[in-house]
Amino acid sequence: MGQAAKVVSIGARSNYRPDFGQLARSQLETARKVKGMSQAEFASLLASMMGWPITVDTLEAWESDATPPGDVMMAVDLIIRSASTGVGEGQPRDVLTDIVGSQFADLTGIYASRSEFQATTSVASLFDDARDIKACGLSLNMLCQTYSDSRLQQIIEGGATLCCLFLDPHGQFIKQREAEEGYPEGQLSALTALNLGIMERLSERLTEDARARLQFAVYDEPIRFNVFLIDGQLCVAQPYLPQTRGVDSPTMLLRKRPSSGGLFPTFERVFTSLWERHGAQA
């Protein structure tokens, strides 16, 4: 019968010093292999996360004899976590977005501004196949200016329902928002009135059955968010920040998930609450 293996306590070896540099190099190489990427692909991924160039030569050095910087290793840890939890399948390719989406249940994308959001997500992909669109906000430009009113007519005639709430162009709170964003008096009011006119002309062109599926109204309350709800599953939420133009405010993209919690129900209540007070009587 063989002898049992003798366990040696590392703590008992007072002179032992782990090679943290080698551990970091090994972790970086492991992360790359877990992702199934070449050095060029992994360098590109890290560069996109860090915001500064990372060459293949640099990555090769980090895997062989140079010690990767601490912030790079934090990014590597995120990559390993995203791979080990299965986050990222069918989701945005940005690793940080993937992990945030995992932590906050239904948050699938965060964009620094509305223009950044619209550069990566076409309004056609949001609305073309929609059967139910609910929107509340200020002027609702994403629906009225960016999306074709003829296409809106087509999807409503095809059976879609559209409910919109605009900030009253003649109310006090749109004037407050104009002042806060630094616009000349009446500029946001004129734009909102223009978009309301688009809705009115659209209603006139619809058949009688389809006209019943288009509802729009105004409200005069402090503006907090633009909210677009598509088919009860997808939400685009855009906050209004102090002293910041709406177009420069962040945009959140949320997809409702079967499990409870998340942010989707919060923004759904924002619309429902406003609609019950103003839209239902329109």
Rank of each mutant, 00 (worst) to 15 (best):
G11L: 15
D128Y: 04
T97I: 08
A179L: 09
A75L: 13
L253H: 03
G186W: 10
D57H: 08
E221F: 14
L152F: 01
R213E: 07
L188P: 08
A24F: 01
M73D: 02
C235W: 03
E221T: 10
A4N: 07
Q3K: 08
G101V: 09
V8C: 05
L138Q: 13
D71F: 06
M252F: 12
H170A: 15
G109E: 06
D149I: 10
T55Y: 03
Q39M: 04
G109A: 10
A31G: 02
V227M: 09
A112I: 13
V100I: 13
T272M: 14
T120C: 11
P69V: 11
E157S: 11
A40W: 01
I156H: 05
Y219Q: 14
Q176V: 14
M1W: 14
R13H: 03
D71L: 11
W52P: 02
V100L: 13
W62I: 15
Y240Q: 13
Q91W: 11
Q118M: 11
V8D: 00
E41H: 01
G232P: 10
R93E: 15
P222F: 12
A24D: 12
A61N: 09
F104T: 04
A119R: 14
I79K: 10
I156P: 05
G158V: 00
S113T: 13
L234Q: 03
R245V: 15
R201L: 14
R32Q: 08
D106M: 08
F42S: 00
Y219S: 08
N141R: 06
S249C: 13
Q103C: 10
G197D: 05
A179P: 04
L162R: 12
E63L: 02
L162Y: 06
A217N: 07
T108N: 04
T55S: 13
R32K: 07
L28H: 00
A31V: 09
D168A: 15
R151K: 12
C144M: 14
A112M: 04
T55W: 04
A135F: 05
L143V: 15
T85Q: 14
T161E: 05
S125D: 03
A4R: 05
F228Q: 01
G246P: 01
F271K: 10
D248V: 14
V76I: 07
Y183N: 13
T85W: 09
V34S: 01
S82Q: 10
R277L: 12
A212S: 12
L229D: 15
P92S: 11
L152E: 01
